[in-house]
């Protein structure tokens, strides 16, 4: 989403009141959609039926919590965002919003999402939602991101929490399947982000962020992408092997998993070039892969 600054205003001005579209932009709505979908899929796959209103509220809370985490990420990283072409037009570095406004918005939205989740569903789901927001902000954003090339490996756990939240909201408990779903998203995150990091490597280098391609080079990154892709596909088959998912999911895991091995293999065999077309294709396919896999989980549950 693009910002909404008036053309009559200078880009660097500190505005006393942010436009509402910039508040929405702080929540990274496009990134949020995948997070929300994995929570929704786990909730549908859970054995306990959920009341539609409570299910809707749980998904809303996951979306608000993800938005809060994104806002707090932008609050902390505004100095980095200003150095990267990809993020330079975000509300804070573009001067359309103060850092304090983003901090207040993020904390308020996060607290609201956790309280509403607890009151509408149960406090286990609320506690996992709170843990995921805190993990993303404190562990990934503040602690790891600027310190280690393993930032998105460990930090990826934050994005893997939503299936646990969705399941817990439906059942009030945690079982083997949501833990496997957590594992799938956790292992999927490095190939997804490192393929992006390969084609925006210059941006990360300019900002001094120690992403793997910047610190260890492209070849090492390509090998790591391949290794994690193999682990992701193996983990995606675990629910089938353990009898926790049905035939629709099994077919989808294989049909979607084969390209998820082929694309990283092409990236592994590729060289650095201007277009980085293979890396961009892997990045785009990785999103489709996770949507497809969790979509199959929903289809499986509905046909059960």
């Amino acid at each position: 989403m693009t910002g909404a600054a008036s053309p009559t205003l200078s880009a660097g001005s500190a505005l006393p009141l942010a436009d509402w579209r910039d508040l929405v932009a702080l929540t990274k709505p496009r990134v949020m959609s995948l997070v929300v979908f994995t929570a929704f899929a786990a909730m549908i796959a859970a054995p306990a039926p959920v009341h539609p209103v409570l299910g809707f509220t749980a998904v809303l809370c996951v979306a608000l919590g993800a938005g809060a985490a994104a806002a707090l990420n932008m609050w902390w990283e505004s100095d980095l965002d200003a150095l990267m072409a990809r993020t330079r037009n975000r509300p804070i570095p573009a001067g359309r919003m103060s850092r304090e406004a983003a901090l207040h918005f993020g904390v308020g939205l996060g607290a609201f999402s956790v309280l509403l989740m607890g009151l509408a569903t149960n406090w286990l789901a609320a506690a996992i939602l709170a843990a995921s927001i805190l993990f993303y902000v404190l562990v990934y954003t503040i602690w790891l991101k600027r310190r280690t090339p393993q930032n998105i490996v460990i930090g990826g756990a934050a994005g893997a929490f939503p299936p646990l939240i969705g399941w817990a909201a439906a059942t009030g408990d945690i079982a083997t399947l949501p833990i496997l779903l957590f594992l799938i998203v956790f292992l999927w995150t490095p190939p997804h982000f490192w393929s992006l990091a390969l084609f925006v490597r210059g941006d990360y280098a300019a900002a001094g962020v120690p992403m793997l391609p910047v610190v260890a080079g492209e070849r090492t990154t390509r090998i790591h992408i391949m290794a994690y892709a193999v682990a992701t596909v193996a983990a995606s088959l675990a629910p089938v092997a353990l009898g926790l998912a049905g035939p629709v999911y099994a077919v989808a895991a294989i049909a979607l998993g084969v390209p998820f091995l082929v694309f990283p293999a092409r990236v592994l065999g590729g060289q650095s070039n201007e277009t980085m077309a293979r890396e961009k294709r892997l990045f785009a396919y990785s999103i489709l892969y996770l949507f497809g896999l969790f979509g199959a989980l929903i289809a499986d549950a509905l046909l059960r």
């Binding site: 008036s6 009559t8 205003l9 200078s10 660097g12 001005s13 505005l15 006393p16 009141l17 942010a18 436009d19 509402w20």
Partner: peptide, 19 residues
Amino acid sequence: MIPAEPEIRRRQQSRVRIM
């Protein structure tokens, strides 16, 4: 640079409506 008064007014109105 402080934004123009009409711009602040427009933002206030749109935020009040959305809220």
